[in-house]
Amino acid sequence: MRWLLNIWRTLTKPAQYLTLGTVSVSAFLMGVIFWGGFNTALEATNTEEFCISCHSMESMPYKELQETVHWSNHSGVRATCPDCHVPHEWSRKIGRKIEASHDVWGWLLQTVNTPEKFEDKRLEMASREWKRFDRDNSLACKNCHNYDSMKWDSMSKLAQKQMKRAAELDQSCIDCHKGIAHKLPDMGTARAPELIAEVGSGVNGLEVDQSYFTALTKPVYFNEKTDVEAGTLNIATKVKVLELKGNRAKIGIDGWRKKIGAGRVIYYDFGLNILSAQLTKDAALEEGVIQTFEEKEDPMTGLKWQRVEAVIWTDTDYLLSDLQPLWNYARSTYSDSCSVCHTQPDEAHFDANTWPGMFQGMIAFVNMDQDTQALVQKYLQEHSSTFDKSAH
């Protein structure tokens, strides 16, 4: 402790023999040395060589980059890892370096050290980067690509139309160009992590005789024990809990079905192609699963419809007590994703049975997992002119 006290006294004791100029110059030189060392270390971690020194980065995303136009093109200009993933502005660069501590932690825990682990985390990592690009308005892209310098005449008519509109809005590049440098995640089978982060993974402690809404598309089962699936329960479907056993719930699904074949598809309402559940043929024919009530004929198609209740089992997770968070997420997703290429029509512009065809034509230009697609389509159908007469 004595030597520490001596050092402290020395550091805090006023200089007796050094002039103010000497102290100032010494402090300046020490500052220069410190700043030079700090900046050198910063730049050393801001090189492609440093990025791919991690095996998981070299073996996956770096190899994917080599197959794209950002690696090899007619102009000979190549984008490196820091060009896209590290902001050029100093203060934002420091913030990004602090964020990168998460990557170092992942490296220590070997989170993505195998191709299988990498694929499992690809959507999560990509979603995080897409959000960062959106937050920065794709500034990393615009450091090289400038709307004002684009040669419109060399583009196709469709590209001109889309890019000129993007230029007018100063749109974020990532809205349209996901997957331009790395492979896209498997959006078709993902379980909508952004959606679940927004609405939650379900109610803890379901109650019998209460109604809930599905936060994801869920499998249904014949009973509380079997793993044999009896069909699927669509997202944003209202169900009533009839019985609880362990992590399974017996539910009732009210709706309508077309009186054709096994009648295994249950719709939200008479004459409306809004999906609530699809049972397997065996489940639809199983005694006690579907109870039928009234029967009506659709004057538009001549098909007979039956009002039904399906009683089936499902897992207790991803059941919400409130539908509104799902609609809020669907509304914002529709607004953000479907305004990329054009002005999206209002929800009440089409009727419930027209929306599926219109929406399926839109999703070819955006990246949505299957759950989000189903949710947005259902949101559009249930907020269509069929239910909102004010638009027409």
Rank of each mutant, 00 (worst) to 15 (best):
F222S: 11
A249S: 03
K97I: 08
T45D: 01
K281N: 15
H383I: 07
V203L: 08
V25S: 07
G246M: 06
K238A: 00
G255T: 01
P356R: 03
W305F: 14
H392K: 11
G361M: 13
R248D: 01
N223F: 06
A126W: 02
L11R: 06
V23S: 08
R331Q: 05
V199Y: 00
D186R: 10
D103V: 14
T214M: 02
Q162P: 02
E224D: 15
P82T: 05
A310E: 03
L242V: 10
E294I: 09
A126L: 01
Q324N: 09
D315Q: 04
I253V: 12
K131P: 08
I251Y: 01
D136V: 10
I94K: 08
Q381D: 05
I196K: 05
D175T: 04
T280W: 12
K296T: 07
V203H: 06
G200D: 13
Q360R: 14
F350S: 11
T214R: 03
S172P: 05
E124I: 13
Q377L: 01
I98Q: 12
T22H: 05
V104M: 15
A140W: 15
F133Q: 06
Q110Y: 13
Q344T: 00
G261I: 08
P82V: 09
I52F: 02
K97H: 13
T314E: 11
D170T: 01
A27N: 02
L4I: 04
S127W: 07
E119V: 01
T316V: 10
L285N: 13
K63F: 09
I260E: 15
L11K: 05
P299G: 14
G106H: 09
G179F: 07
D269M: 13
E207F: 08
G302F: 09
N46V: 00
N143L: 15
W90P: 02
T22D: 12
L323T: 01
K93F: 02
I94F: 13
E295Y: 03
I363C: 07
F365G: 05
G106E: 11
Y147S: 00
D103K: 14
E295Q: 14
D351C: 08
M300S: 15
K238Y: 06
L109T: 13
G288R: 10
P185Y: 06
K238E: 06
I363E: 11
V208I: 14
Q16S: 09
S335K: 06
S138R: 10
V308D: 14
M125T: 09
A215K: 01
S337R: 03
P115D: 12
T333F: 02
N39R: 11
L20W: 03
N328Y: 03
E119H: 12
W35M: 13
P219M: 08
P82I: 12
G21T: 04
